[in-house]
Nucleic acid binder design. Sequence first.
DNA 1: GCGAGTTTGTTCTCGCGGTCACAAACTCCG
DNA 2: CGGAGTTTGTGACCGCGAGAACAAACTCGC
Lengths: 239, 239
Amino acid sequence: MNTGEGSGAHDPHRDIPEATVARLPVYLRALTSLAERNIASCSSEELATAAGVNSAKLRKDLSYLGSYGTRGVGYDVDYLSYQIAREIGVTHDWPVIIVGIGNLGQALANFSGFSSRGFRTVALLDAATQMQGQEVAGLDVRPFADLARIVAAEQVSIGVISVPAPAAQDVADAMVAAGITSILNFAPAVLSVPPGVDVRKVDLSIELQILAYHESRKAAESAEAAATVDNGSGEGITA
Amino acid sequence: MNTGEGSGAHDPHRDIPEATVARLPVYLRALTSLAERNIASCSSEELATAAGVNSAKLRKDLSYLGSYGTRGVGYDVDYLSYQIAREIGVTHDWPVIIVGIGNLGQALANFSGFSSRGFRTVALLDAATQMQGQEVAGLDVRPFADLARIVAAEQVSIGVISVPAPAAQDVADAMVAAGITSILNFAPAVLSVPPGVDVRKVDLSIELQILAYHESRKAAESAEAAATVDNGSGEGITA
DNA sequence: GCGAGTTTGTTCTCGCGGTCACAAACTCCG
DNA sequence: CGGAGTTTGTGACCGCGAGAACAAACTCGC
């Protein structure tokens, strides 16, 4: 086992599955919560319930980034927190810009969880002249044309899009041209970007529609069950 | 094939994979966009590119809900739109309540995409007395204690949580007690709910952290590549 | 009416991800 | 110092989902 590249067991920092990456922030938050309650160490079982996952899955996830636990004991909260934060890359802050300071953009700018955990909003941009110069969340709203200059000056690599859907692709193109390589898109639109640029999509109405689908099924099932109770064939009402 | 329950080919309305359900709203939006441009029919290839997916995946997804296309021709936009909307259950509007009218809650209440596609915000609730009675997005903010009454009166089955993390579980419990069976949670907290209740989570800082992880890898890779170019061993700087 | 061209619906295969179960390793106590 | 108990890390297995390839079916032109 471990053929070639004989650098030791497990070859750290390589090939963490996407599903695991998506859960690491959840573990990090759970660990932070434990640390705030002055809990110094925890078992995989405790951490798993705090994070809402299976304990086996948690252990496997953590094993991808190394052996940071002690058998028979568990995990040191601070140590594991640091290791996960290092793996994610949030030991230092990332500068972020937000384009589109409408309802949602203002909420994002004011959202404390945004800035608290590894991210720092360095600029707000909007194309509408009536927004420019206004102060939102302690930052001046700047014209969209300043995008490239700000990105270069502040070394920004992450951008947030909260503009209406028709403008989203144009904003994404401008971001990519300015050198941004990670985009968080709140606009209900499919973005096409060159390879090497990551896009994550947050779509509120899609989430609601998924819930609606399951609601419909629940309603259909309970109606079906009621019909089955009323009369075996489930056809017609014979009261 | 198709053993038992001999009701015909394909047994519609049964067993749609979760991954497909998550994409149906994307297809629906793409179809709506086509309809607005007066396009009456389209091929799976066209619809797939508009939705940002593979055409084979799209055809497979659509086949789960029936054979609504015509071979050699394609899909009728309006007909397929209706079939997807019916499958999701958004042919009629769903009443929705929002609990927690802070920055994010106000943005959600004002978000037009929320109400435009199958959902109608019927009430805004907040526990803070200074919010109550204020008008947001044309609705009065009502006290949190009214939750059960409103849910019962308006037949609400979908609730949105946009309160701070520490309050999220309490709100979820109250929603479940009031009869809500689908929750869209924006609070950065793990909710535990009884079986039969669906929860979907939208977590902004997790999305950003996932992007940060990939950014870190990109930075590490380009640094590594640069070191490899500079000197083969990639160890130390020998200028 | 019939063949050529086109597009859907489906089958097959492969890989990722989740879960179970167990060996390895550490602590604690006598 | 050794055994019992506990907890991690990992190997094995299974099922879902993605993608490619192909058969079925429809339209169009002659």
